[in-house]
Computed example of a mutant assay.
Amino acid sequence: MKTRIMLSLPLLAIALPAAAQEVNVYSHRQPELVQPLFDAFTKETGIPVNVAFVDKGMVERLVSEGDRSPADLVMTVDIARLSQVVEAGVTQPVTSEVLAANIPAEFRDPGNQWFGLTSRARIVYASKERVADGEVTTYEDLADPKWQGRICTRPGTHDYNLGLMAGMIAHHDEAAAKAWAEGVRANLAKKPEGGDRDQVKSIWAGECDISLGNTYYMGAMLADPEQKDWAESVRIIYPTFENGGTHVNVSGVAMTKAAPHRDDALKLMEFLASDEAQAIYAEINHEFPVKPGVARSELVQSWGDFTADSVNLGELARLRPTALKLMEEVNFDG
């Protein structure tokens, strides 16, 4: 009887199918921005990537799914959103010599819970016709009354602007940051709404003269025949904080605690930090690679250079609730 059992074990092992190779990603990023990366990964490894675009409620979804979640990785923008996923307890630390070597320490979590993949600057789009060189040099300039009725922006409570507000708090204090937000609000040409590209359209239409935006939208607009004229009506200015550099944020990735395909997911994470993937980010998404030695695209290089602010990304995430509170107190979007 014992012999029959021993003989049946290898037969059972042979009969069991191997776990399917694949990676499931919950992405806050638009599918067209990440699909070229996944296609390149699948071509190189043969491992398919399934993407679910989750615009809102990603944390709530992962918490609800718990250990049953099909998601292996989470990809999102903004350090605050990365931190929120980690703080919800739905991610796991990842130890990888490749990630440690390719991603500088300032672009990854000290506990290896999240890893930055690209960076982007929060800049000023300025009308070529109505704004002279040197009129805007700092973020603090935006509160100057000379800009009254001349500024457009997306909502102040959007994560991109809250990141900038957090930087203002870090460089000054809450009172000074609140006064700055009040000053910018007083200079708005219209109620904050829409996205960064909508603000550039407003400049083109003569509704305002300057706007806040992320760098990579310039590349997206230039590639869109309907938006090319908007883009060509403005130039990019890299403001700095009065006592710092240009505000920079990240897009990044984290592995979920459930991760049913952990090994394949790690391969994808390491691929996203490779020269090939970082170059795809640079050329297609017009973002700044985080891997040292990978060049920005020629288009992005043509926008000039800047000195990134030195405030720690984790500090920006920590200050986000305060930034939101202050924006609401001044009724920025009202």
Rank of each mutant, 00 (worst) to 15 (best):
Met168Trp: 06
Ala170Asn: 08
Lys178Gly: 02
Ile210Asp: 00
Ala186Glu: 07
Arg197Val: 14
Ala170Phe: 10
Asp173Trp: 10
Gly183Lys: 00
Val200Pro: 00
Gln199Met: 14
Ile210Pro: 03
Gly213Thr: 08
Met218Asp: 04
Lys191Ile: 12
Tyr217Met: 13
Asp196Met: 07
Tyr217Pro: 01
Arg197Phe: 13
Gln199Val: 06
Ile203His: 04
Ala176Trp: 15
Ile210Val: 14
His172Phe: 11
Leu188Val: 08
Cys208Ser: 02
Leu188Tyr: 05
Gly194Thr: 04
Gly194Ser: 06
Ile210Tyr: 02
Trp204Val: 04
Ala170Arg: 02
Lys191Asn: 12
Arg197Ile: 12
Glu174Val: 13
Pro192Ala: 04
Ser211Ile: 03
Asn214Ala: 14
Ala176Arg: 15
His171Arg: 11
Pro192Asp: 06
Ala179Glu: 11
Ala189Trp: 01
Gly206Arg: 05
Leu212Tyr: 02
Lys191Thr: 14
Ala177Arg: 03
Arg185Ser: 12
Thr215Cys: 08
Asp198Gly: 15
Gly183Met: 04
Ala181Ile: 10
Leu212Gln: 00
Gly195His: 11
Leu188Asn: 01
Trp204Phe: 09
Cys208Tyr: 00
His172Lys: 13
Asp198Gln: 14
Tyr217His: 10
Trp204Asn: 05
Glu193Gly: 09
Glu193His: 13
Gly195Gln: 11
Thr215Lys: 01
Ile210Thr: 00
Gln199Glu: 14
Ala181Asn: 08
Met168His: 00
Ser202Phe: 07
Glu207Asp: 11
His172Ser: 15
Ala181His: 01
Ala177Ile: 07
Ala205Asn: 12
Gly183Leu: 03
Lys191Pro: 02
Met168Lys: 03
Met168Asp: 01
Asp196Arg: 03
Cys208Met: 01
Arg197His: 13
Glu182Cys: 05
Met168Gln: 08
Leu188Arg: 03
Ala179Asn: 09
Ala186His: 01
Val184Pro: 02
Lys201Thr: 04
Gly183Thr: 03
Ala175Val: 13
Gly194Cys: 07
Asp173Ser: 11
Gly213Ala: 15
Gly195Val: 12
Ser202Trp: 07
Asp198Ala: 13
Ala177Leu: 11
Val200Arg: 01
Val184Gln: 06
Trp180Ala: 05
